[in-house]
Nucleic acid binder design. Structure first.
Lengths: 226, 226
DNA sequence: CAGAACCTGCACATGACCTGACTGCATCGA
DNA sequence: TCGATGCAGTCAGGTCATGTGCAGGTTCTG
């Protein structure tokens, strides 16, 4: 399985060990990683701003707190990851109001695992940095594509990672080594020349969609977008 | 929750007070009004032709009747509002064996309220009830089929779940693992290759009805519709 | 000019994916 | 009861996209 960079770090706050287990297993099956909190206190400790958590799954009916309060606390702490609330059947009223207020999502217990999985990924997608647009050039991670106006070119995973690394700071120069490290994340050792091949392919594909942005070389340093 | 601001009068026939409560609250929060029936008899009394009800929500597993029969009775009575059936998770077989009580919609319990709200509003908005459509491609859960214009292909349950999972986010790539987790919900372990076989079958069936939508592979990542 | 850095085109191994056929199982109707 | 049917899942073998490296040419810099 190729690492495509869209693994999501999910923070779970749930007191029931069985439910925790089910969620954890399903998410790991889906290729994600999980951080656990057993109650509101642990949630604030483990799922805060600096935890790297991208999506929150919060049980509303915690023994020591309401999941929405936990959410509020985390938000106040600078954690803005979208939340998926788990609620029991008999707490609808609060749930609905919370949902309307937040823009987050919720699922009623007992839930289908596939439902949770799909929703988590949907939330993660929405929360991800919006498709960065550099003078008309748009990178679309969901489709591994780059498009300008209505023209689209599909990229391979490696091509996409490389272009994304360079496009991250439009205008400024990305060093060769930096680009390699970004496009080959797991420390893979690639031939010096390989990156040139990819740069070339990217140039060809960008040209094929009449991109207004050019992928130029800064000799002795790296590459940049103009 | 987005809707078009039109208030809809929804008729609910459901014996479980908790579920009634959940539905009622959610629909009211969504800006709709509700008429209640606790069983089949009350449904025929309260939700008939002259009740003004625009959308029906009918539990299939009523104590005194089958929701489908209730629907039939209402139809015979001149009530032609589109119906949303609630079915228990373990009664999928009924659905497979196909009730065509008017090509309406259904939701499997346990359900997410947002799901119900979306479907109710969808049913209310359209003159004829219509399941989710992706650029001409229509998935019909009632009949386990997919059709485009007047051409229809029937799917097996597994095929349907897989296609539904991929069609859920049209345009964006659904990763292999996600698709597997969604189409084989109970954590079943299937051979790596199995999904390929199903993808192929779906492609054949989509081609057989001249689908404008193609089920394409994004190598190393997953599948997408376009 | 020399040497380095980079570009270009191509070759090729790998593995992801496709394809068609097969087996086992459950259901259904005669 | 028994075969017919259809579905789920597996398998073996082939195909092809992708990632990678190489050879040779071109451009830049001093």
């Amino acid at each position: 399985m190729v690492h495509d960079g869209r693994m999501t770090l999910v923070g779970i706050c749930e007191d029931d060990p069985d439910v925790r287990r089910v969620l954890t297993d399903a998410l790991k099956m889906g290729g994600h990683r999980v951080v656990i909190a057993r109650n509101g206190r642990e949630a604030v400790e483990n799922l805060g701003r600096d935890s790297g958590v991208e999506v929150l799954i919060l049980d509303i009916g915690l023994p020591d707190a309401d999941g929405r309060d936990v959410c509020q606390a985390l938000r106040a702490n600078g954690q803005h990851a979208p939340a998926l609330f788990l609620t029991a059947f008999d707490a609808v009223h609060d749930r609905v109001s919370g949902f309307h207020a937040g823009g987050d999502d919720y699922v009623v217990k007992p839930f289908a695992i596939s439902e949770v999985l799909v929703r988590v990924e949907s939330l993660a997608r929405r929360a991800r940095p919006q498709p960065a647009s550099i003078s008309g050039l748009v990178l679309n991670p969901d489709r591994l594509s780059v498009h300008v106006e209505d023209r689209e070119a599909t990229l391979t995973p490696t091509e996409f990672r490389l272009l994304a690394a360079i496009a991250r700071e439009p205008g400024s120069v990305v060093r060769r080594r930096t680009a390699v490290a970004a496009a080959w994340p797991d420390g893979a050792i690639v031939h010096e020349n390989t990156i040139d091949s990819y740069i070339r392919r990217l140039r060809v594909k960008l040209a094929s969609i009449d991109s207004p942005v050019e992928l130029t070389t800064v000799r002795g340093v790296g590459f940049t977008l103009r």
